[in-house]
Nucleic acid binder design. Structure first.
Lengths: 144, 144
DNA sequence: AAACTATGCAGAATGACATTCGGTAGATCA
DNA sequence: TGATCTACCGAATGTCATTCTGCATAGTTT
């Protein structure tokens, strides 16, 4: 995991569709060596997968909200219950007054309300506190 | 934007490295037609880009936190100030008591503290409220 | 209803690129 | 010094992306 690897990660996070020849030229390696580097990054699990990035608004997910979920029970095992709600994009167990923090994308605020209802129906959930996003400054990959 | 397009988006969000032949077989189209579909999805901006997904822990970003940022001024124009902090992965203007919600990834909690200090140094920021993530249930692409 | 137009698809042809392999240089250890 | 290992380059090969032609279907105009 040296500088070249980090550079490759940055480039591949920006555009994973470019050729190994171009990638290699950018970091000063041959296409073959670059390919081998990237292969090992995958093997080690540093690169999890390659995926397309979709515009949420274009697929009817223009409303973004974060929801703090309070609970009266231990929720460390109920990840599946949250995963069952497709509008939830992320779910994290958090330290602090709430128990779970989820990121929700819906088409409308009415649908957001419906998601809140479904979250409320999860066993042990005692309350929700939703925060609607007005504008997203940026969402970007992590810099190695 | 029909069912086939949506199916293609799901498949490409899971694995953008597969061939158009395989992709086409999955949705019942030829490789050529599939290629044309995907090309148009890119053209329309539905697909923004294709990128690799990196394991945060593998690149020294094992600590995840969400930070509510309070402010005394209008912060709608200070996106650049947040973008200048590389540990910030997302920044959103929110409705509610706070003004901005940011997602931060650092190697240690000490570094998180340092990020909070830098956020505090942004003009107009009057306070921060950090929530550390103990466990991430899941982070997944949005389902079309 | 007939002709026209546009759109989407299949199948084939071409060229680019991923992937593999042999050989070499440098680094580490004995 | 010799042995071993790793990372690299450059070339060879096969796969696949990309483009093109022709056809069918659906929608539109006359």
């Amino acid at each position: 995991m040296d500088d070249v690897d980090r550079q490759l990660l940055v480039l591949l996070q920006q555009d994973a569709a470019q050729s190994y020849a171009a990638l290699g030229q950018a970091v000063g390696l041959s296409a073959g060596a670059t390919h081998e580097r990237v292969r090992k990054l995958r093997e080690r699990g540093v690169i999890r997968r390659t995926a397309v990035e979709v515009d949420p608004a274009a697929i009817g997910r223009g409303v973004l909200a974060f929801v703090m979920v309070d609970s009266t029970k231990w929720v460390g095992d109920s990840g599946d219950r949250f995963a069952a709600i497709p509008e939830i994009q992320e779910a994290h167990v958090i330290a602090g007054s709430a128990a779970v923090l989820v990121k929700v994308r819906t088409a409308t605020t009415e649908q957001l309300q419906d998601v809140l209802r479904r979250i409320y129906a999860i066993d042990g959930v005692s309350g929700t506190q939703a925060t609607v996003v007005l504008e997203t400054f940026f969402e970007r990959p992590v810099t190695p």
